[in-house]
Design a protein around this nucleic acid. Sequence first.
DNA 1: CTGAATCCATGCGGATACTG
DNA 2: CAGTATCCGCATGGATTCAG
Lengths: 116, 116
Amino acid sequence: MRKVYTPATAANGVEHVLKLLEGRWKLIILFHLFDGKVRRYSDLEKLIPGISQKMLAQQLRQLEADGIVARKIYPQVPPKVEYRLTPWGQALCPALDTLLKWAEQKDDFPSSAPAR
Amino acid sequence: MRKVYTPATAANGVEHVLKLLEGRWKLIILFHLFDGKVRRYSDLEKLIPGISQKMLAQQLRQLEADGIVARKIYPQVPPKVEYRLTPWGQALCPALDTLLKWAEQKDDFPSSAPAR
DNA sequence: CTGAATCCATGCGGATACTG
DNA sequence: CAGTATCCGCATGGATTCAG
């Protein structure tokens, strides 16, 4: 029997999984791999203004280690490396999509973010 | 005419909204306010093991300032303060729900997280 | 092109103590 | 009960340099 889904209790235990998405750039990166898109390292660098090489590489390494992103290396000169979502990463797409739609809804709610 | 939704371009510009969810405890807190639930400060403190008063208060302040969480103070002794989601915060629930389901799917994907 | 390595500043977040 | 105030360590992340 599969575990019954209850929002009330579900919060206990998902922290560990949620932590995999922590990090300033992870969600941004994932959005750019949305939909099964395949990106090269340099593509992501251009697509994400403000990110440093170190951060891009580091967050990609972590996403890879966590089984969310897959890396494919083409042994050639100059090097070519492609990133895509793993099956589990793909499963995250609906959540990303919902998150995206929420973000876009912001303006539909008057006086939502009064400023910080 | 409303903006057309395209995952490819949508990633540009949502960063700002996504940042509102950054912070080690924010998602956890939101999960405990899921579904229109109303929680007192002390409730959240008990529900979230490991969080410090400072962090709980700080993240709540930020979520409040960002229009995601609403605070209601009962002027009485001893003090009583309730937290709930704002309408915009409520709109986030579907996304939280999808995220939760993704987290629970983890075991369905063999060799997902090989360890770090 | 795709990184790894290093140095360094910022600030996040923890622990503790204090208050209305 | 529901916070604020303070101190502080360490991880996060930026800039730069080097390398296969």
